[in-house]
């Protein structure tokens, strides 16, 4: 891996990420979205979070696993219940970690 290759990627990718993060805030008022897009932005948190969570939990490591070999899935389900019921980030993390470690300790996954 050459140093030019590495640093070109670092610089360009960093600029790209900053641009993506800032662009619509800075262009606000100058770019007018169609009404439907504006309404659709309401669903961004739920849709994006779900799209990140699903593969991480259903196919950890990139493969579908049998239910009895996927502690991630069970830990995520228990954590989801806790998150939904208590709306507490601390409890959600705690239960997710404990269930995951517990199942691994029992030999799952």
């Amino acid at each position: 891996m050459s140093s030019t290759y590495l640093w070109t990627i670092i610089v360009l990718a960093s600029l790209m990420n900053f641009f993506l993060r800032a662009v619509f805030v800075e262009a606000y008022g100058r770019i007018k979205f169609p009404r439907i897009v504006e309404k659709g932005l309401y669903y961004v948190p739920a849709a994006v979070l779900s799209a990140i969570i699903a593969p991480a939990v259903l196919t950890p490591g990139g493969e579908w696993l049998p239910l009895q070999q996927n502690p991630q899935l069970w830990a995520a389900l228990m954590a989801s219940l806790v998150a939904w019921y208590y709306k507490s980030i601390f409890r959600t993390m705690l239960v997710g970690l404990l269930v995951f470690w517990g199942l691994q300790w029992l030999g799952m996954g």
Partner: peptide, 25 residues
């Protein structure tokens, strides 16, 4: 690497209110 999705679960579940939002997720 499993632990990062837990942070997202802790944010997502509390905002799931309404058929439209649940459907979106």
């Amino acid at each position: 690497e499993f632990f990062i999705p837990l942070t997202f679960i802790s944010i997502l579940l509390p905002i799931l209110r309404g058929k439209d939002v649940v459907g979106a997720a």
